[in-house]
Amino acid sequence: MTAVPGQTVGPFFHLGLEYPLMNELVPPAHPRAVRLHGRVTDGLGAPVPDAVLEIWQPDPQGHVPQAPGSLRRDGWTFTGWGRAATDPDGHYQFATLEPGATEPGRAPFFAVTVFARGLTDRLFTRAYLPDDPDVLAADTLLESVAPDRRATLITTREPGGLIFDVRLQGDDETVFLTYPRLRDAWA
């Protein structure tokens, strides 16, 4: 069966995709909240003010959340999923918890989806926690990416937060991913 083709989210996605607290997987005042944020830029380095990112992640213990409630946050349930639109400067932000390793010794990461006006189909990538160089060095994906592009997949730590910029095009273009059953998705 042929999968339905994707189409751009267009310029008016805020209408259908935005809802209250969509980018607050935990309240920002949560004692373990981190700010995951960054900028989305185009091939000239200009901000992309009409992009939307989604993150999907395990909880800090490495468990995969399977509780509903991402659309109506109760302030207590960690659903592991969130959505953030970029502002006029191309900046997005999430309040969340740091992902844990789903198996011992594995490098923890956020799974990230990127949509934008001008992007004909969504893009997949990962945002790894930056802390443990040994774990990162042993990661299957990072190991298979050219060394000069690996950094595009790894967040930068700052006080209280993690920075993850997305460059859609250009010399320091973010590494985007495809999966065996999606290979046809790419021309």
Partner: peptide, 14 residues
């Protein structure tokens, strides 16, 4: 789409 599409091929992973 001109300035907003990746020029590198996507990286295939399981």
């Amino acid at each position: 789409s001109v300035l907003r599409h990746p020029k590198q091929p996507p990286h295939l992973i399981d």
